Amino acid sequence: MSSLDVLRRLAAAQARDRVLAFGIAASLGWLALAGLLALFGPETESQGAAGWLIWLLGLLLPLALIWLAVWSARALLLLRTEAEELRATLARMQGEAGAEPLPPAAEPRPEPRPAPAPRRAAIPAPPPRPAADSRQATLELDSPPAAELTGPELFFALNFPDGPEDREAIRCLRLALADPGMARLIRAAQDVVTLLAGQGVYMDELVVPETDAALWHRFAEGARGEPVAGLAVIGDENALRIAGTMLRGDEVFRDVAHHFLRHFDRLLSRKAQDGEPQLLAVLAESRSGRAFTLLAQVTGMLGRAGAGPEGMTEDEQP
């Protein structure tokens, strides 16, 4: 199951819970109203058993209708979720045909918890897109043609969708997966993020202060170590320790992490040639960018003393 499937199931479960809460609230409201009618309404003692039977039916019938509606809505949400998962599975099967296979052990783990969206206002505004692109807001089975992503589209793809209703991020992710090189980066980033999440390191919980775009430009041009030490801004010692331990002791994670670092580094180098250094800093705020900063800090690419795991040799550096 992919991270998007996990998010989709979480959103569907929350929707079913909201329907259940609505049913409980409606039932309590109806019972309260019936109680008020019984206290202040006309006397029913003279009506005998038939009157009480009618009153009881009038009390229970609305409750039955309420819970029939609740059951129907929850069943419909479940069916809709299963249909979306089937469409997503078919789309992945089409998109991954002939793509580079991932390491067998790099199956997706539990996805990070959703959190408020990172700062996106600094991304340069994209040019108007043709009206036909509005069709990509839904999860069609036909993959869109490969095209150069704008700054916002690249950010949304690297940040991953927040759920099945995050249609813009899903559209951007599909655009990125249509390009073989970007698809390898996205899948490597997803593996790294989910493997770290399996050890309790969530990208949404990392405090990453805003960094200098000029430093990212220098990094993209090949600077390493102390000249770009200002990019080593992650101060979560627990996250650094866990990431370092995984790099030292988990061969599968080390291979996936180095694969991800290489591809993200190449992306930064390409974007640095476009003359938009601010875009590099914005991309570093995405979930993929935070994972890159964490691993680059741990491996010593950013040159902070104590940032890397003890015992990591040069051969283990990406």
Results as ranks from 00 to 15, higher is better:
Ser2Thr: 15
Ala15Gly: 06
Val19Leu: 10
Ala21Trp: 05
Ile24Cys: 10
Ala25Lys: 08
Gly35Asp: 08
Leu37Cys: 03
Ala38Met: 02
Ala38Gln: 08
Thr44Phe: 07
Glu45Gly: 05
Ser46Asn: 06
Ala49Cys: 08
Gly51Asp: 04
Trp52Phe: 10
Leu56Ser: 08
Ile66Asn: 04
Val70Ser: 03
Leu77Trp: 07
Leu78His: 15
Leu86Gln: 14
Gly95Leu: 11
Ala97Ser: 14
Pro103Phe: 10
Pro104Leu: 04
Pro112Asp: 09
Pro116Ser: 08
Arg120Ile: 10
Ala121Asn: 07
Ala122Asn: 14
Pro126Asn: 09
Pro130His: 04
Pro130Arg: 06
Ala131Trp: 14
Thr138Ala: 15
Asp142Cys: 01
Ala146Glu: 12
Ala147Pro: 03
Leu149Lys: 01
Gly151Glu: 12
Phe156Gly: 00
Phe160Arg: 00
Phe160Asn: 00
Ala176Phe: 00
Ala178Glu: 02
Arg187Val: 00
Ala188Leu: 06
Val193Asn: 13
Leu196Ala: 06
Leu196Thr: 02
Ala197Arg: 07
Gln199Met: 08
Met203Ala: 13
Val208Ala: 03
Val208Met: 07
Thr211Asp: 01
Ala223Leu: 11
Ala223Asn: 04
Ala229Asp: 07
Val233Glu: 03
Ile234Cys: 01
Asn238Ile: 08
Gly244Asn: 02
Phe264His: 10
Phe264Lys: 07
Asp265Ile: 07
Ala272Ile: 05
Ala272Gly: 04
Gln273Leu: 12
Gln273Tyr: 05
Leu280Thr: 07
Ala281Tyr: 02
Ala281Ser: 12
Arg287Asp: 14
Ser288Lys: 08
Gly289Ala: 01
Phe292Asn: 05
Thr293Asp: 03
Leu295Pro: 05
Met301Arg: 14
Met312His: 02
